[in-house]
């Protein structure tokens, strides 16, 4: 009797666990089925590199959007990565215990704010600020990068901090015993030793930035153009889907799924890279 019962609950848990894997498979297959035919029809090269996006005339080129995603994400990384890494060093090595107890939950809270709220803050604060001080409409690459930079901070900070804290204590002791200052110890021993974790943190942060949709729709301006400066509006892969999916039909809808495939591949590649880097570290 007992073993039958155990078997039964085991099966229930197996099915439930399977469902999450199944979701991944179903979504992947669905996107591929919907999007691949269009990529085949247009041609992969033209789909990715053409900058003409005119669904009305049957022109499906996402080059401008890919460029937009890359620029906005790079901008977010340029602003967010140094701040994030410095913050993680401060938390791991410098902050007194009491301050750490306030900082850590505060940063977790930052991760919990809904992205639409970030977008709203960008809309009422960052966009007008750029319009008044730098010109243009304010809806711009810069606005998107600033908002995204803040949104990727929790990812970068928490993963970098953990990788610094997880270092053997003996590295720090060894360096200090050699007459190095605390700061010399941090930058010449601890940071190089934690390098793989910090790189993984940056990659995961970038993945988060590329995938973000709602917040950037609200501040980017969303024009399908090749931007000339960082205060020009731009459209990213995610915002393209977010804006047009509501009314797209037929080929147009397929083209949006195809955009999704590109996004999916990029983010998968980033995540796998990050996992590979951290796993290599553990092996050593």
């Amino acid at each position: 009797m007992k073993s039958v019962k155990g078997d039964f609950s085991g099966k229930v848990f197996f099915v439930l666990a399977l469902s999450s894997i199944l979701a991944l498979v179903v979504i992947t297959v669905f996107i591929l089925m919907k999007g691949l035919p269009l990529i085949a029809e247009v041609g992969l090269f033209k789909f990715i590199f053409s900058t003409t996006w005119a669904p009305g005339q049957g022109e499906y080129g996402i080059g401008a959007m890919i460029l937009g995603s890359v620029i906005v994400t790079l901008g977010a990384a340029v602003i967010g990565v140094p701040i994030g890494i410095c913050c993680s060093i401060f938390m791991a090595e410098m902050a007194p215990e009491r301050m750490r107890k306030i900082f850590r939950p505060a940063i977790q809270l930052l991760a919990g704010i809904p992205s639409v709220v970030y977008g709203f803050w960008g809309l009422v604060f960052v966009v007008p600020f750029i319009r008044e001080h730098l010109g243009g409409s304010g809806y711009s690459i810069l606005a998107g990068s600033v908002v995204l930079a803040i949104m990727i901070l929790p990812t970068i900070i928490s993963i970098s901090e953990v990788s610094i804290i997880a270092l053997p204590r003996t590295y720090k002791e060894g360096a200090l015993a050699l007459g190095m200052t605390h700061w010399q110890t941090i930058y010449s021993v601890q940071l190089p030793a934690a390098k793989s974790g910090i790189v993984a943190a940056v990659i995961l942060g970038i993945g988060r930035a590329i995938g973000e949709t709602m917040a950037v729709i609200m501040v980017l301006g969303n024009a399908v153009i090749i931007p000339k400066s960082i205060i020009d509006p731009v459209r990213t892969l995610t915002t393209n889907i977010g804006i047009e999916m509501g009314y797209a039909t037929g080929k147009h809808q397929e083209a949006l799924f195809a955009t999704g495939i590109v996004l999916f591949v990029v983010i998968m590649a980033l995540n796998i890279t990050a996992q590979y880097i951290t796993r290599k570290k553990v092996k050593k």
Binding site: P168, L176, L178, G179, M180, P192
Partner: peptide, 27 residues
């Protein structure tokens, strides 16, 4: 300054995760 005058070797070898040469030249 004190620790530059008084070196220390620990219980377990704690070489840094870098090359042999860098371990010696770092300080």
């Amino acid at each position: 300054e004190l620790r530059k005058k008084i070196g220390m070797v620990f219980q377990k070898p704690n070489v840094f995760p870098m090359s042999i040469r860098e371990n010696i030249t770092l300080a």
